[in-house]
Design a protein around this nucleic acid. Sequence first.
DNA 1: AATGTTTTCAAACACACGTTTAATTTATCG
DNA 2: CGATAAATTAAACGTGTGTTTGAAAACATT
Lengths: 226, 226
Amino acid sequence: MPNPSPDNTKLRSPEEGDTRVRLLHAAGEEFSRVGFRAANVRDICKNAGANVAAVKYHFGSKEALYRTAWEHAAREMVTAEPMPTLGPDDDPAVVLADFMAWFLRLVLNENRDHPCAGGMLAHETVEPSGGLDVFVEHVAGPIHAELRRIVGAVLGKPGSRKLTDDLTNAVIALCVNPKHSHAILDRLGHRPPNEPAAIDRMARRLAAFALHGLIGLARDEHKESR
Amino acid sequence: MPNPSPDNTKLRSPEEGDTRVRLLHAAGEEFSRVGFRAANVRDICKNAGANVAAVKYHFGSKEALYRTAWEHAAREMVTAEPMPTLGPDDDPAVVLADFMAWFLRLVLNENRDHPCAGGMLAHETVEPSGGLDVFVEHVAGPIHAELRRIVGAVLGKPGSRKLTDDLTNAVIALCVNPKHSHAILDRLGHRPPNEPAAIDRMARRLAAFALHGLIGLARDEHKESR
DNA sequence: AATGTTTTCAAACACACGTTTAATTTATCG
DNA sequence: CGATAAATTAAACGTGTGTTTGAAAACATT
């Protein structure tokens, strides 16, 4: 048996698997930067100050290392900051604004609590190689579900399923696009913000935009149906 | 001199460079599917019914082939259907809706006039390798500029630069996200539409959403400033 | 037909990269 | 200390892949 540290994902004690942890860090950075396929095991090991064979010894293969890095990243993303949820007495409009600000921070504020997840996700979206399932189950799924509830509450009366879905996705689009289209926006001279204050300003704007859109649309539907 | 067909990009006569054209087609498909790095010259040549050496002979290298395929794709994207523009007597709201419908068709309706551009763009966004510059100059740039004019007109009074930029990007986000997040939406059970009718329905919804958002925000600004 | 040019082809080259091996060092423990 | 296990290392292996070569085929021109 080549892998004598059979634990699942995270380091147990801060000491165990020193090189294992370093490898996981370096791997996260590299996978996040260039994606699974383009990532280079030798480079990862060099950055981790480890030998090439270490990845086989500690993880088994490049792919296993990738999966582990993904679990790591997904967990970081979820635990970094709690997701706002809609309580029974909350004003849906306020919660929506909070939610969008939180979401935008999650997406844009890459350098802090979850340095790899964003980049890994971007690559995984375009070139799925397994990590997406982990991500959807632990991150995207819960986010989507809660946001859908909030959007539904803002819309008021039930409304069609498809409409709520489309609008939920629209709100997501607003928050996610600044990151997704980063490379293009850059070349167009509109670099997305990265300091918390600027992110918050943008979030407020987008929330206002979304709110007006949602309640306006709800009014239209209502008018139409009577 | 190894490349005796020195024309810039497109086929002149339907006969010239038969294998050259076949190569360009196959390359477009493959690059669109898996991106530059993961694309395989041998596979491309096999699908084109050409020899491996053909890519060197006709284009010079894999990278040159990629650039040529990109120019091809960008041109297809631009010429497929004319972009709606805002004339002096047009209603900005109507033009915005038209524009968004056009944009959404451009993005989602992959299988028709520009089968490769969408996929190539997606990969290029995540892993830039040169094609992005071509794309931004010929496609993204003009689209962004015109949409910015339209958004400005909908907003009415000048308004801050940054606000107009953010909102332009917001509208773009609404149109582009269904494609970008395709893999995730799929796993969540919300497959984006691909038949023209469904695309149009979605476009109308998103346009209404955006319109309410824009004029609502413009009202807020106005109120705030007096 | 002869000659020169353009195009195609099978084979091989060169190198990057994931993986593996076998030996060496380091840690653990009776 | 000495023995067993764990961890690390340098070197090599095998394969995938972009590129190149040199010759043959197809084509054009006189």
